[in-house]
Design a protein around this nucleic acid. Structure first.
Lengths: 207, 207
DNA sequence: TTCTTGATAGAACGATCGTTTTAGAAGGGC
DNA sequence: GCCCTTCTAAAACGATCGTTCTATCAAGAA
């Protein structure tokens, strides 16, 4: 029966969300929740309401190619969330604390399941397949740059901004894992407050 | 042929390291490097120079029971490393920065493979099997308490010490992952320096 | 119509997964 | 000698893994 899998309308080719996009989103969420090795392609297909044939049609490179696309999707998703949190204030300290609050709320809303979209996959594949590792590296670089830009705008020098971005990102990543294991918002909220203090103590007032 | 698998001497029952301990160590390292789902029991047995029969003899609960023992082993291992790093100075700020340096050196020595011994497994099993999750939770609590004790000794109040320990642990955890992906000591070293600044800025001088 | 292309559907392959099972080898107490 | 416990050895089970394969459907170009 070719097209028309589950969409509302039937006539045009791309109704609602395309199959490829559904597969990428399902893969991204599943990798985020249970890691790369723990997630089967067949489960991804079922979760995306697609068939195995469709998955291999769009990703002839198999699981690895799909993982790269999923990581890149998670990259954009997390960068958007960082951007939203940072946009709340011109003061970098307030903005970072706002980010932590946003992450904590989203984490609780998912019952502590949806943490960082790349950490699990990154850790599992650390010394192995390079395309996935490169996608994870690009994501971390991207997020760090989003933070660094905010710090530069807040009056920090290039080197200070880059280093602060590195530490803030590390702290948020680590606090997100800790919050997931503790099933509590506290590690993320405390880390956010401490990061704000660190930013203030390193000088540079809100302009 | 019963005993005598690979040890130097042959006569006594427990020559060198016992089979059970070898299995736990191999499991801990493999879970640390490639996660819970990505590590097969047969590989663990081979790596430990044991047989499948031995593994299931010591761990009748299968992979899950073995994982709990492996996490607890990693717990002690990481706590020892924290203790060693913290023992270098009475000043909590200096001590924490020392820890970060120690982690960075060990990480580089393993070619960025041996990060935190529980993070990968913790993330993969986050909403699922509770025994493993509880072991991971106990490990994080243990490490936080090691840090908190150091801060209390350094003159911080109970609540300050607990919160600082939470953030420092999160930052070290996150920076370790970042260092692994970047293949660079820089994220860990920078986080260590910033954590020292945070500790100093929160008052309390070295006693 | 006919041919071609993009996408879907699902059966089937070999390999490996965690686990179970059965058998056998050492050592101590009797 | 014999028995019993502890530990090792390896074959084998069903299930699931990632992947390949063939068949089919819909729609546009000729």
């Amino acid at each position: 029966m070719g097209t028309k899998p589950q969409d509302a309308s039937t006539s045009p080719a791309r109704t609602g969300i395309g199959t490829r996009e559904r597969v990428v989103r399902a893969a991204s969420r599943l990798f985020q929740r249970q890691g790369y090795e723990g997630t089967g392609i067949k489960l991804i297909a079922k979760e995306a309401e697609a068939t195995l044939g469709s998955v291999y049609h769009f990703f002839p490179g198999g699981k690895e190619e799909l993982a790269v696309a999923a990581i890149q999707h998670g990259d954009r998703e997390f960068a958007d969330m960082l951007g939203t949190g940072l946009a709340g204030s011109d003061d970098p300290a307030v903005a970072v604390e706002n980010c932590a609050r946003l992450l904590a709320t989203a984490l609780r809303a998912s019952d502590w399941a949806d943490g960082c979209p790349v950490t699990a996959t990154a850790l599992e594949t650390i010394g192995r397949t390079s395309p996935i590792q490169e996608a994870c590296l690009a994501a971390l670089r991207n997020w760090q740059e989003v933070l660094a830009a905010k710090f530069r705008d807040g009056g920090f020098g290039d080197e200070d901004a880059e280093e602060l971005a590195s530490t803030v990102l590390s702290a948020l990543e680590g606090a997100e894992v800790t919050s997931q294991v503790y099933r509590s918002e506290q590690p993320l909220l405390t880390a956010g407050r401490h990061m704000a203090q660190l930013i203030r103590s390193r000088g540079a007032v809100a302009r």
